[in-house]
Design a protein around this nucleic acid. Structure first.
Lengths: 146, 146
DNA sequence: CTTGCACCTTAGAATCATTCCAATTGCCTG
DNA sequence: CAGGCAATTGGAATGATTCTAAGGTGCAAG
């Protein structure tokens, strides 16, 4: 399975592209995000990372997450005033927040829909990002992305 | 111009529907939101309200805003980690965040687009709210909604 | 009226995610 | 090895928001 290698390479590559180094901390943080894609908060990432690297600090986790975001390897997800969550899914997708469980689901966005949405912008508005968020009740037995 | 009356009535009506009272504070906060629709933060609302009612407290402004939101007279708008903004526009609309100016613009959402977007949800997902947010560069001379 | 009571407002303290800061530490280049 | 920049770290600081406890306010029943 070349996925792990690919990811590590991707990380090193992307970091290098931005003139940044591939430190162990950054690698572990990124791995943690890839391993369990349940949109964890920084605190949750911190807890998971500590299992493998007990000396890491919360500040570093924030730094690493911010770095990964700036390299376009990770997206942030915000729901109202809740703590920011992190998502390594790079395909265009929306987020569905299940009010009952608090869980977040990725919803793929077909290009056609994205186009339709962009088309609502009046002349002169130039969007470089679109964020679509649903809230409601999710299907119970969705194949989850653990 | 019956607009002012209509608004006041609407407010009193909606509050009553929820078993709440139409207090002077709630009225002023609502008026402030209607008067200048620039998506102010709670702090900004506080500042504007104090002009008319110097004794009001920030806590009350938060309370009033929360009350108005719960009556569906006002919507909250969140951009990343920025302070929450408040919007009295009740029509279905998206928000466009101008990265250059920090200003927020309402973008009307035609029902057809809303349908298209809802259609991306897999069977079993039942959304009771959809939020669409753009970021980018806005047209410079948009007729603003002051 | 006037008493009771539920609803509101208020100031200030508390919370909590996130950022900042200043001090190392690590790593590469010369 | 020396210099220097990039990263990490722990703890302090920040800032929006919420909580708390202590009065107000207004209506309804007696």
């Amino acid at each position: 399975m070349p996925a792990a290698t690919l990811n590590a390479d991707t990380l090193a590559q992307r970091l290098a592209d931005s003139g940044l180094r591939a430190t162990p901390q950054r690698e572990v943080v990124y791995e943690v995000l890839l391993k369990k894609r349940d949109h964890p908060t920084a605190d949750e990432v911190f807890a998971r990372v500590k299992a493998e690297r007990p000396t890491i600090s919360l500040a570093t986790v924030y730094n690493c997450l911010e770095t990964l975001v700036s390299c376009d390897l990770v997206r942030t997800v915000n729901f109202e005033r809740e703590p920011t969550r992190y998502c390594p899914n790079l395909r265009p997708h929306a987020h569905f927040h299940d009010d009952a469980t608090g869980r977040t689901h990725d919803i793929d966005l077909p290009p056609a829909v994205l186009e339709k949405v962009k088309a609502v912008l009046p002349r002169g508005f130039d969007a470089n990002s679109i964020e679509i968020t649903f809230r409601g009740k999710a299907a119970k037995a969705v194949a989850s992305n653990r």
